[in-house]
């Protein structure tokens, strides 16, 4: 009779011990650190105060030169734009985007760093914004 009780308990304890000992490393943001070394921006958009896109066409993202060129509508207020990045799986962005960003100083383009999933590769992208001109 006893063995019927002891065997399942032993199996359960072993399973629990196995699971609890597996290590899932996380970074300072509580995000999972993975094996992925890819580090690039796959898409980029800019939203106005109405949270609608202000880009005229798809941006040009150069992953080698680490630049993003985006053209926005005529009349766009560059002082309040909300950037939206799409990154490769498991990557993260630094600094984090927490609100509207002022892009009005065109001579000092904004920069963001993409950090890979394994947190070992870092690439800094520069965002160049141009405003559609009146013909």
């Amino acid at each position: 009779m006893k063995k019927y009780l002891i065997i399942p308990v032993a199996i359960l304890l072993t399973a629990w011990a196995w699971v609890s000992c597996t290590d899932f490393p996380v970074d300072e943001d509580g995000l999972l650190i993975t094996d992925r070394a890819e580090c690039y921006v796959s898409n980029f958009d800019l939203l106005g105060t109405d949270f609608q896109t202000v880009r005229v066409s798809a941006p040009t993202i150069d992953t080698t030169a680490q630049t993003i060129n985006i053209k926005v509508f005529y009349g766009t207020d560059l002082k309040s734009l909300w950037p939206q990045f799409s990154l490769v799986t498991d990557a993260k962005l630094d600094p984090k985007i927490t609100g509207f960003v002022d892009f009005s100083d065109l001579s000092n383009p904004k920069k963001w760093t993409v950090i890979s999933g394994n947190r070992k590769v870092k690439k800094t992208y520069t965002v160049y914004v141009t405003v559609q001109e009146k013909p």
Partner: peptide, 10 residues
């Protein structure tokens, strides 16, 4: 209505 840009109702 200006060609090349989107002005429309403002």
């Amino acid at each position: 209505s200006i060609s090349g840009i989107t002005f429309a109702h403002a």
